[in-house]
Write a protein that binds this DNA or RNA. Structure first.
Lengths: 255, 255
DNA sequence: GAGTATATATCCAAAGTGCATATAAATCAA
DNA sequence: TTGATTTATATGCACTTTGGATATATACTC
C-alpha cells in the first residue's frame, strides 16, 4: 500500500547519499506462539535454546527479521523452518501448500532489557494449528501444556509429565498476551475451527471453545449461535460414533 | 517481567564478548495516531514533513526508538514532543501531569519497501485526546478530518477547508487500522470518554460513539447499557443547557 | 404561566439465552 | 429381534435484553 510518488532529481540525490547508520539500531526478531489442542488441553510448541542467554531454557520459536522480508513473511518462515508448517496471514487456508495455518500478528515487545545481550525488539505472532500437523522433535521441539494462574498476566508451562518449566526471556508474558487475544477473539469469531480438521461437528467446536475459555458452555445456545452466525455450512456427511451420528460442518471461508 | 536468572561465569564471558553487529538491522520508529473529536468529526493530528522523502506531505507524528527507552516510552515521548501531550499507556489518567491521554499500541508495520530510504519498521500507537488539549501549530501541525471510503482499508484526510490530501508512506493504511481498532473496541468498552472532559453527560458519550461508529444509536438502550456496565458513576453535578439539566457522569477508573 | 426543549422513567413487543424435555438415529447386549 | 444406552437434534418455555414508543420531570424562553 505504498504510495507511488514522483521523485525529483533533488530528492533522488538526497536518497542516494542518505547514510542510515546515524542511529543506534535495535535488532528485530519475530517470535511465534504456535497453539494447538491435544487431549483437551491448550498447548504451545516450544524449542529448547542451544545458546546463551537462557541456554537450555525452552522458548518460543523465533528468528531475526531478514532485510528483504516483511514481518508476515518472517513469521511464516519461522513457522516453516522451526515447525515445518506453512503459515498464511489472514487464514486463507485453501492454498495448495501442505498445511497452511492461521497466523496473525499479536503485539510487539520492546523493553530495553528484555534481552541481556543487546536491544532486541520482538514482533510476536500467533498461529493456530491442528494437532495432527505438529511433529515434535525429541529434546529440541516439544509441546507444553499451558496454565494461566488466577489473576496473573503470564503463563505457566508443563511438559507431558506435568513438570513445570520456566520460559526464556519475556516469553511467558508473550504467551499470556496470546491467550488473552484468542479468548477475546472467541467472543465474536468462531476462530476455534482453526484448531480442528476441515470438517468437524458442533460438539467438537464447542469442546474447543470450552478448552480455550476454560469454562462450560450451554450446548443449545452454542449450537444456535453458531448456526445463526451463517459462518458454518453443513457438508451432508456424518460423523459416526456411539449414539446418533452428528452432522459435519465446514467453515465458510468465502464470506 | 524479565526473569532474573543466575548467570554462570561462562555465560557472563559470552555476553561480554557478544558482537551484535552480525545482523543487518532495520531502523525502528514509533508513529502515533492521535485521534480527537471536533464538531462531530473524528480528526487526526498530522505533521508536515520537512525532509525527504515525502517532503511537504502530511504524516503521522513519529520518531526513532531510542536505545534506552521502551516502545511505550517512545510513543509517550512522541506525543509530548510533537503534540505537547502527556500520554500514559493503559489509561491511568489520574496522574498529576497536565493532560495524560489514553495511549495504546496498535500494530507493527514492516513492509521492506514502506520507506524508500532504508528498512524502517514502525510500531504504531494510537492516542485518544480531548480536543481542547490539542494545539495546532499553523503550517506545521494540524488536525485533519478522516473519512473511510466504503470497503476501503485505508483512510482519506481533509483539511478544515475540506481539501483532500495524500499521506506520507503507508500512513493512510495505519490510520485505517487505528479506526478499525477503535470501532471494534467500542463494542465492549465505552472507550469514548477518553475523548471527553472528565465529567460528561450520557448524551455526549452517545454522540461520541455515534461519530466513531458512523451510525445512530438507540438512546434508551445506550443509556441502559452504559449504566448497567457499572463503569460510569454519577457525580451529582448537572450540565445545564436548553431543557432539563443532565446528570454529569465520570468513568470509574478504579474498577 | 404557556410553550419548548431535553433528560429521565415506564411500558411493551420482539429477539436472544439458559434450561428442560422430547424425539431421532445410531451402538451394544441379551 | 428387541430393548437399553448414547448422542444428536428439535421443541417448548421462562427470563433477560433490546428497540421503540410514550409519559413525566425540569429546566429555559417569551
Amino acid at each position: 500500500m505504498i504510495h507511488l510518488i514522483h521523485r525529483s532529481p533533488e530528492e533522488q540525490q538526497y536518497l542516494s547519499s542518505y547514510e542510515p547508520s546515524a542511529f543506534d539500531r535495535p535488532s528485530v526478531t519475530v517470535d511465534v506462539v504456535i497453539l494447538t489442542l491435544r487431549e483437551g488441553h491448550l498447548e504451545a510448541l516450544l524449542v529448547k535454546r542451544k545458546e546463551h542467554p537462557y541456554l537450555n531454557y525452552w522458548s518460543l520459536p523465533g528468528g531475526f527479521v531478514q532485510p528483504h522480508e516483511s514481518l508476515d513473511e518472517a513469521a511464516a518462515r519461522v513457522l516453516r523452518q522451526k515447525a515445518g508448517l506453512e503459515g498464511m496471514v489472514g487464514m486463507e487456508r485453501e492454498s495448495p501448500h501442505k498445511h497452511p495455518v492461521y497466523l496473525e500478528q499479536l503485539y510487539t515487545f520492546g523493553d530495553p532489557k528484555r534481552d541481556p545481550r543487546m536491544r532486541v525488539i520482538s514482533v510476536a505472532y500467533y498461529a493456530l494449528v491442528e494437532a495432527s500437523h505438529i511433529r515434535e522433535a525429541g529434546e529440541e521441539i516439544a509441546l507444553f501444556k499451558l496454565r494461566t494462574p488466577e489473576g496473573a498476566s503470564s503463563v505457566e508451562i508443563f511438559d507431558s509429565k506435568n513438570k513445570k518449566y520456566s520460559l526464556a526471556f519475556d516469553h511467558a508474558e508473550i504467551l499470556g498476551v496470546a491467550l488473552r487475544r484468542i479468548r477475546g477473539k472467541l467472543s465474536y469469531t468462531p476462530i476455534g475451527f482453526e484448531l480442528l480438521p476441515e470438517r468437524f461437528t458442533l460438539r467438537q467446536l464447542q469442546a474447543v471453545h470450552e478448552t480455550i475459555l476454560q469454562k462450560k458452555l450451554n450446548k443449545d445456545s452454542f449450537r444456535r449461535k453458531m448456526l445463526a452466525s451463517g459462518m458454518l455450512e453443513a457438508t451432508g456427511a456424518l460423523e459416526r460414533g456411539l449414539g446418533r451420528p452428528a452432522e459435519l460442518y465446514r467453515f465458510r471461508r468465502e464470506v
